[in-house]
Simulated assay, not measured.
Amino acid sequence: MKYLLIMHTNPVIWDSLSEEEKNGVMEGHGPFMDAIKASGEMISTAALQAPSESATVRVRGGVPVVTDGPYLEAKEYLAGYYLVECASKERAYELAAMIPDASIEGLGVEVRPIIFSEGVGG
């Protein structure tokens, strides 16, 4: 089964970390990616820019309207994800616990099953 391991971040929490702690989180992704590539469980991953770099598109009266920023105001935002394929939800939980962000107080990794996907690797 495929799972999306969703990393949310909270700028207040992230900014409260020391540079050493931030570097530990960022550098910890390398070994995690190596492990899930080696196990054959990794499908893809992406890290996303902050919401200040995003735009929202809505179609109103047949005309696209583009506004700066995310759709909703929130304290947390989607920072990135790993798309994995593994044998069970328990294994997906194990993988999520290995992501460095999960060890930071106030942050976590959401595990969501995929019910449909299409594209490379279908």
Rank of each mutant, 00 (worst) to 15 (best):
S44T: 05
Y71A: 10
E76H: 12
L17E: 03
L83F: 09
A74E: 07
I43Y: 01
G30F: 14
Y81M: 07
N23C: 03
A38G: 07
W14S: 09
G40L: 08
S54M: 09
I115D: 08
S88D: 01
G108C: 04
S52N: 11
R112C: 07
M42V: 02
E76M: 13
N23Y: 08
K2F: 06
A97Q: 14
G28T: 14
I104Q: 07
V120C: 04
A74I: 06
V111L: 13
E53C: 07
E105R: 06
A96V: 02
P100T: 03
M33K: 04
K2D: 09
Y77P: 00
W14N: 09
E27M: 11
I6L: 15
Q49W: 11
D15H: 15
R112E: 04
E76P: 11
E94T: 02
V120M: 11
A46Q: 13
A96E: 12
E19I: 00
G119T: 02
E27T: 10
A55L: 08
Y93W: 12
K37M: 10
G69Q: 12
T67G: 09
L95N: 07
E41G: 05
G121R: 04
I114Y: 10
T9L: 10
D68Y: 02
E94S: 04
Y3D: 01
R112F: 06
A46C: 11
E90G: 02
L48K: 13
D34C: 10
R60Q: 03
G122H: 11
D15M: 12
P100E: 11
C86S: 00
L78W: 15
K89I: 10
Q49A: 15
L72D: 13
L17A: 04
A50F: 05
E19M: 06
H8M: 15
S44L: 13
T45H: 01
S18I: 06
L83D: 10
P31Q: 08
T56Y: 13
K37S: 09
S18W: 08
M1K: 03
G119W: 06
E94V: 02
L78Q: 14
E73N: 15
E73K: 15
L72K: 12
K22F: 04
K89R: 14
G62K: 03
S88K: 01
S88C: 01
E94F: 03
E27H: 01
P11G: 08
G122K: 09
S54I: 05
I114F: 13
F32K: 05
M98I: 02
I115P: 06
E41T: 14
D15I: 02
P64A: 06
G30S: 14
P51I: 08
N10Q: 07
S88I: 02
L83N: 00
L17H: 06
S54T: 15
V84L: 00
Y82V: 00
M7K: 03
E76V: 04
P31W: 13
Y82G: 00
L72R: 12
P70T: 06
V59G: 01
L107R: 03
T9S: 12
P64V: 10
E27D: 12
